[in-house]
Amino acid sequence: MFSRKHTRKIYAVLIIAALAFPLISNNTYYITMLCLAFIYMIVAFGLNFITGMTGQVNLGTAGIFCIGAYTSALLTTKTFISPWLALLVVILFGFVIGIALGYPSLRLKGVYLSLTTIAFGEIVRQLVNNMTDFTGGAHGVRAIPPYCLFGFELNTKLRLYYFLLAVTIMFGLIAYRIIYSKWGRVFTAIRDNIDAVDTCGISSSKVKIIAFTLAAVFAAIAGGLYAHYSGYINPSTFTLNLSVSFVVMVMVGGSGTVLGSVLGAVLVSILPEMLRFLGNYYQIVFYILVFICTILIPNGIVNVFLERQKTKALPEKN
């Protein structure tokens, strides 16, 4: 069992390990995997607000991630603006989607968010796939330029690794500040007892929309990073399965904590690779493991070790 003070030490150890990793290992495969895990972490940090903390299941993250990636990719390849400028547009898009999708589904109580976000993800995938003239259809977008930082092009694996690590740490800090603030409290309060939140003078639907919009902005930014990291995107990446993976990261890692999202993102991006020795069976074994985790430790791995979750939430039945 460890407390919040201990977790700070764990973060420090993790950051040092991540900084030192390329120096110790020059296995580019693992470095590539970790780059992807960093991008997923940013998505998970955001998703944690809406799914991990307020308990609303968002199954459309892949759609938002997709819009982030395509916006940045198309802006930089078609209008040749700087990826940084494109990033601003991506943030704006994330914000708009968050509100436009959050408003219809979150002012209602119930499971509407899961359904509308699935629908949204599907709309995005269909449109990207079918608007061939604009998005390149199934062929995707090629030759997306990398980010430039102080005159350096981030085009080598190592530069990308440290760049993504820095961005991830930044978003981790933002997420950490929000989680341990009045906002974190209110998000958790919504999961615990939504009626009581309203009686406290807080509009629960507004708070849910805030949490969802934060998630959307994080996912859109991560999508932008993904486009410039991989240099090539196509619609087959952004499926419902990806959305589900994001939720799995938050859930299995540990909902409501930054550490949980970090662990979840690393597990989901690396575990299937480690199970490759099972050959044809690796995927089903992975799904079964996740299924068991969902049922046995619904609050996630990290929370098993955290002090404050020792008393389990009583299910609210009315």
Partner: peptide
């Protein structure tokens, strides 16, 4: 057994059940 779990767990476990069925069918 799942009916008293939180919405999040319930949804995710049915999603995973679906994935398991899907993989079993493929295999």
């Amino acid at each position: 057994p799942l009916r008293n779990m939180s919405a999040l767990c319930a949804i995710m476990s049915t999603v995973m059940l679906g994935n398991i069925i899907n993989e079993s069918v493929r295999l």
